[in-house]
Amino acid sequence: MINVLIQGLALSGLYALLAVGFTMIFSVGRVLNLAYGVYIMLGGYMYYTAVQVLGLPKIGGFAFAIASGIAFGVLTYTILVRRLEDNPVAVEIATLILAVVMQSLIILIYRPVSKSMWPVVQGVFRYEGVFVTYNLLVAMVVSWVALAGLLLFVRYTRYGRAIQAVSMDRKGAVISGIDPRQMNLATWAISGALGALAGVFFATYTQLNPSMWVGPLIVAVAVVVVGGIGSIIGSLIVAHIIGFMETFTTALIAAELRGVFTMILIIVVLVVAPKGLFGRSEL
């Protein structure tokens, strides 16, 4: 039982980090970025290229991954989303197509063969027959630090409060002299960075594969849908619900049903409580 708890906690931490960038864009720009999974994939592949192909140190790998996440986030926003901004449905369609295009690009460059990544931190934590990799524990800690940092940034810095203002009341923000486009751009950049960072851990945890963007995207979608619009705390709670649900399903029910409950959760919540379980709260 204790191992299920520890693993559930570690997995949930990773899921929270995976989802938070997606949540941010949704709360600030009111659009669903279905190309978000690509940031995760990009993070993994760039880290791999830097560390395992070019032989850079790990910190260089992180820098490379995060920089490319930011660049791609900014590009998605300026080239695609800004042109379609008033129409969330158009953004949803266009980003889905973009995701498939990026998937093809990754296949073209890296081939469709799955690649294993070396863990960021070596070693295994063992306790009473429980084993969890240090890599996953580090991912969990990084996730908490990143989320706490984000919360502080949004609540206590000028820039962060401006972003929050746009997310709560766009017109009001414009009146008080905030440029929503600039705030949106910043959000997409932060989202890209968070996605890529999560991607490095996700990929070391699993593997690199051109279709690896789908799984995390579904988790992120579930977190947003169940958690309601853009609450960081809500996302954190839901990430834990999903993480624990998956771990319990695998350990106690049947491993092959793991993803089924996440899908059912999305459907049920959207049909029964379209505003999410936690409704709208501050960012």
């Binding site: 659009v31 669903l32 969330p88 449905v89 949803e92 579904i218 979608v221 849908v225 899908m263 999305i266 459907i267 959207l270 049909v271 379209p274």
Partner: peptide, 11 residues
Amino acid sequence: GTYFALVTLAF
């Protein structure tokens, strides 16, 4: 809108 698309995707 966007939520409807998500439900159908989940289906």
